[in-house]
Simulated scan of single mutants.
Amino acid sequence: MQSEKTAFLGELTAGIAHELQNPLAFMKNFAEVSTLLVDDIAGDAPRPSRDADQEFLLAGLKQNLQEISQHGQRATTIIAGMLARSRNSSTPQALTNLNALVEEYFRLAYQGLRAKDPTFHALRTARLAPELGLVPAVAPELGRVLLNLFTNAFYAVQQRAKTDAAGYRPEVRASTQRLTANSVEIKIYDNGTGVPESVRQDIFKPFFTTKPTTEGTGLGLSLSYDIVTQCHHGTLTVDSQEGVFTEFTICLPG
């Protein structure tokens, strides 16, 4: 009965998310087109023919349209996260080179942040156990988890670097090790802003985020937790000290 309820909620969530996608796409498109029209009006009309009130109205209208487009994009991102959560992966597990997967997404996350901010640099350290061997996993799903955790780690050190520049060296570490014959561990550490103890118990809840509303949806860690615990029957935990470090630990059977 519980499985049926979960499946029903997943289908309901997916249905609602799909229905919201079209009106959101129209809203964003019309906002962007209207922004271009405002630019055309402002550019075509001779400046002496416009008084200060008209200038103010055009500037305000453009700003409002940009806000509509920005928040529409945030809603689209939330819907994409909801669809990802509602999707029941039927992909079977396959023997996976976990070290190669960690290296790949470690690199991709860093390159992604550098593409947005070319001035950003961080020390990257990988300690990957050569004896790890192949581990049963759904590589694309586990890759999403790693990408999310690495992206969050680089974001945290980037934010700390903005306010703690003197002598601070941003660092993100990744490590793997075999715990027992039937279990392996992945650790992702950063010396960034840390997670306040008061909210640490909420970090894996859907829609909870410590980022500004324009930068986070609160679905990444929730989805990561579901992939690790439900899809891979493992555990995902966090240890942190505010202003000092954060470390996520993934334990997987294998």
Rank of each mutant, 00 (worst) to 15 (best):
M1G: 15
S3Y: 08
S3T: 12
E4Y: 10
K5P: 05
F8I: 08
E11Y: 07
A14T: 13
I16P: 11
Q21G: 04
Q21P: 01
F26E: 10
M27D: 04
K28I: 10
F30W: 03
E32R: 12
T35C: 12
V38Q: 04
I41A: 11
A42V: 13
G43H: 13
A45L: 15
R47M: 00
R47V: 02
S49Q: 10
R50S: 07
D51C: 14
A52M: 11
L57V: 15
L65H: 06
S69Q: 08
H71L: 08
H71R: 15
H71V: 06
G72R: 02
A75Q: 12
A75Y: 13
T76S: 14
G81V: 08
G81C: 05
R85C: 14
R87A: 13
S89G: 01
A94Q: 12
L95C: 10
N99V: 10
L101T: 02
V102N: 00
Y105L: 05
R107L: 07
L108R: 14
G112Y: 11
G112T: 07
R114E: 12
T119M: 11
H121N: 13
A122F: 06
A122M: 04
L123E: 09
L123I: 06
R124E: 03
R127Q: 13
E131D: 11
L132W: 04
G133Q: 03
L134T: 09
L134N: 01
V138C: 05
V138D: 04
L142R: 04
G143R: 03
F150I: 09
A153T: 03
F154K: 01
Y155H: 07
Q158N: 12
K162V: 11
T163F: 14
A165P: 07
A166F: 06
Y168R: 10
Y168C: 10
E171I: 03
V172C: 06
R173G: 04
R173D: 02
T176A: 05
R178S: 06
L179S: 01
L179H: 01
L179W: 00
T180L: 02
A181H: 06
N182Y: 00
N182I: 10
E185A: 15
I186N: 04
K187E: 12
K187I: 02
Y189S: 05
N191K: 12
N191L: 11
G192N: 08
G194I: 04
E197F: 09
S198I: 11
V199N: 03
R200V: 00
F204W: 10
F204G: 04
K205E: 15
K205I: 11
P206V: 01
F208I: 11
K211F: 08
P212A: 15
E215N: 07
G216C: 08
T217W: 09
L219H: 02
L223S: 01
I227P: 02
I227Y: 05
Q230P: 01
G234P: 12
L236Y: 02
T237H: 08
S240P: 14
Q241D: 15
E242K: 15
E242I: 10
F245R: 14
T246Y: 06
T246K: 04
E247P: 02
T249M: 00
C251N: 10
C251E: 07
